[in-house]
């Protein structure tokens, strides 16, 4: 017999091995958690007043839109795609919604319209990618251009939002006491989106098909999975998330500005990657992306505590992104050798 010898499985040596064989793909998420803890610990040791309920509550409040975007982006990246349009779509839906409300439309009607607009952008990207073989990068780029242009078309200046319901999302603070933990409805929305995203990915066929496509689109197709529908839907999810982020961001700033969210797509991608999602697709978790956003937000907070220039945020995030990308590359190279 002349076949190439294969390494025979070693007998399981206990809990660790079993854990690793089941949860290997969670390791990057743990790495992100460790990173977050280290940043917190270092900041706490340096400033002494970072780990306060106020600061941590503010993290969720300030980055609510980013959590929502990161969930949508996770869906797309898991399929092996990318969505560069999220920042611009967020800005456009925000502008459009604000202008409708300025014209007196009730927010109950405006919010669904904003979500539908986001979905339309996602669908357009998905159709270009799926039916016209356009690279996701280029298709979402076109959507980004279009959304940004449309945002300016609505108005060149910011539009103030006076709708009570929208402002309520931001101004209401469910507080445990003065100077203590609090959460705003926008924060609750963000956490709900994370929860729903995590459940959908873990417990529905749609979610599992997303992982399958990211693992190997060819295999997924051979297994008879609905590849086309699932990929389209992943971009739609990202689009809806961008629309929802538009609502939340509008509430956060109390106004819409067409320049909102420039570069946000990069922040989102960075957060998702730092949270342990492989850019080649197939591995990653919404919960990881949430951690990634926390890392991003904490770095931002730390830098403002330091009184340093905010440009350090981007530099630090870029450096972290680099670190994670290179580590991912090493992991992928190693698993290819198997």
């Amino acid at each position: 017999m002349t076949s190439v010898p294969v390494t025979t499985e070693k007998a399981p040596t206990g809990v660790v091995r079993r854990f690793l064989s089941r949860r290997a793909s969670w390791v990057p998420v743990f790495a992100a958690v460790v990173l977050l803890v280290v940043i917190f610990a270092a900041a706490q040791a340096y400033f002494g007043n970072i780990l306060t309920p106020r600061v941590i509550s503010a993290l969720l409040l300030d980055n609510a839109y980013l959590f929502i975007l990161a969930v949508g982006m996770t869906f797309v990246i898991l399929t092996g795609g990318i969505d560069l349009s999220v920042g611009a779509v967020m800005a456009f839906t925000g502008m459009f919604g604000a202008s409708l409300m300025r014209d007196g439309m009730p927010s109950a009607a405006v919010v669904p319209i904003m979500l539908l607009l986001g979905a339309a952008f996602g669908l357009a990207i998905g159709v270009l990618v799926q039916y016209f073989d356009v690279q996701p990068f280029i298709a979402s780029l076109a959507a980004m251009f279009a959304a940004r242009g449309l945002a300016f078309m609505v108005s060149l200046d910011s539009i103030k939002v006076e709708d009570g319901a929208i402002l309520w999302l931001q101004s209401t603070r469910l507080q445990a006491g003065v100077g203590s933990w609090y959460i705003t409805p926008t924060g609750i929305i963000a956490l709900l989106v994370v929860l729903v995203g995590a459940l959908v990915l873990a417990f529905t066929r749609f979610g599992r098909t997303i992982y399958a496509i990211g693992g190997s689109e060819q295999s997924a197709r051979l297994m008879g999975l609905p590849v086309v529908r699932t990929k389209l839907l992943a971009y739609v999810v990202s689009g809806v998330c961008a629309g929802l982020a538009g609502v939340v961001f509008t509430a956060y700033t109390g106004a819409s500005y067409p320049l909102n969210g420039i570069g946000t797509e990069l922040d989102t991608i960075a957060a998702v990657v730092i949270g342990g999602t492989l850019l080649t697709g197939g591995s990653g978790y919404v919960v990881g992306s949430m951690i990634g956003v926390f890392v991003y937000g904490t770095i931002k907070t730390v830098i403002s505590f330091l009184g340093a220039d905010q440009s350090w945020t981007r530099i630090s995030i870029g450096a972290l992104l680099l670190m994670f990308v290179v580590v991912q590359r090493v992991i992928v190279a190693r698993s290819n050798r198997r």
Binding site: L266, I269, S311, W312, R314, I315, G318, L322, V325
Partner: peptide, 14 residues
């Protein structure tokens, strides 16, 4: 190249 796209402007600002 995304890495530099992200960090480069920060460096320029610095």
């Amino acid at each position: 190249t995304l890495v530099l796209m992200l960090a480069g402007r920060g460096v320029a600002l610095l």
